[in-house]
Computed example of a mutant assay.
Amino acid sequence: MTVSQRVTRSILRRRQAIAGVLIGASLSINLAACGNSSNTSQSGAGQKKDVEITLVGYAVPKAAHDVIIRKFAAKWQQEQNQKVTFKQTYGGSGSQPRAVIDGLPADIVHLAVGSDVDKLAQSSLVAKDWDKKLPNNAIVARSVVAIVTRPGNPKQIKSFADLARPDVKWVTANPKTSGGARWNFLALWNSAIKAGGNEAKAMELVTNAFKNVVVQPKDAREATDAFAKQGQGDALLNYENETIFAKERGQSLDYVVPDVNISIESPVAIVDKNVEKHGNREVVEAFARYMFAPESQAEFVKLGYRPAATVADPRFPQVKTLSTIADYGGWNTVQKKFFEDGGVYDKIEAGNK
């Protein structure tokens, strides 16, 4: 073999060796890539993207919401393999719909009165038949109106009519901003009607009673603070559940539940327009339904709300005559008649100035 042939054969061997290395390296890279792709797919298998719910409510039931939210989030994570977080915003029920209409991105609302949800429906944020979308006509919690007094009830206040006595000063939130205050107003009005009076008698009673109001904060919690912490008034009108909740946590207070009363019904509703925008309908609807589940209802009862069913409970004195908002034509009628600009409440306030 000549020198030239030996050189040529040596070059060919080197080229074959280099080609073999390159092919091996290529195969290694491809296999590694396939392996990484497989690992990525497996690590994400079944795991859904995190989802967020914005809950907007009136101030009173927050303590129940906190527990219900925690339980729901754990249940949803376990059953759906998806993390759900919540944003919560609270305030007076009368002012919360305006905030949502103005852009607060609520997915679900829990408000003190149906008329506040109706405002959202009128703005096409909530379905017109929102009260048919959830169990129990969307009423998730019930209570009645209680009269909180000073220790020992020195003024011997026993009925709503006693609030019209000239020697009694009292506190309520403002019906323009507070759903609870609207219930307070209606409890007074209802007491006069159920005592056999006509609307003129009811107007007289409520007018005289509101002459004695010393302060009208924007929501029920601030009204409670004005009475309990600031010492204003001889009495406070508030939800029965608020008084039970406070008393069971060590606050010393006396209260009366008049046996002529009105059923306070607080609804929840899904804000459809925002849910569509956020793409979280499945979890929002599941949470809304969960609020009616027995474990959730138990949290409302712990907070002092009356059970949905008629259940004997020593914390809840019997109410002999219990009216409902339906007795007065429903919230659309009541809102327009009593609380819209120029309505009965405005006339009473103007007359008392």
Rank of each mutant, 00 (worst) to 15 (best):
T2G: 15
T2L: 09
S4D: 12
V7W: 06
S10G: 15
Q16T: 09
A17T: 12
S26N: 12
L27D: 07
S28K: 05
S28T: 15
N30A: 15
A32C: 07
A32T: 12
N36C: 10
A45D: 12
G46A: 10
K48P: 01
K49A: 13
V51C: 05
V56P: 00
V56S: 02
G57Q: 14
G57W: 03
H65F: 12
R70G: 10
F72C: 00
A74I: 00
E79H: 04
N81S: 13
V84G: 00
K87D: 10
K87C: 03
T89S: 08
G92H: 02
V100M: 04
P105T: 05
L111E: 07
V113D: 08
D116G: 05
A121E: 04
S123H: 13
L125A: 13
D129N: 15
N136R: 12
N137C: 04
N137G: 09
N137L: 06
I139D: 09
T149L: 07
R150P: 06
P151S: 11
I157A: 06
D167Q: 13
K169P: 04
S178V: 02
S178I: 05
G179R: 04
L186W: 11
S191L: 10
K201D: 15
L205D: 05
F210V: 00
A223H: 03
D225G: 01
D234E: 06
D234I: 06
T243C: 12
A246F: 13
V256T: 11
P258R: 05
I262W: 11
E265K: 05
I270W: 01
K273P: 03
H278Q: 09
V284C: 03
E285T: 14
F287E: 03
A288S: 01
Y290K: 00
Y290F: 05
F292T: 04
A298Y: 06
E299S: 04
K302P: 05
K302W: 05
P307F: 09
T310Q: 14
F316N: 08
T321C: 01
T324W: 06
D327A: 09
D327E: 10
T333W: 03
V334G: 11
F339G: 01
F339V: 00
E340D: 15
D341T: 14
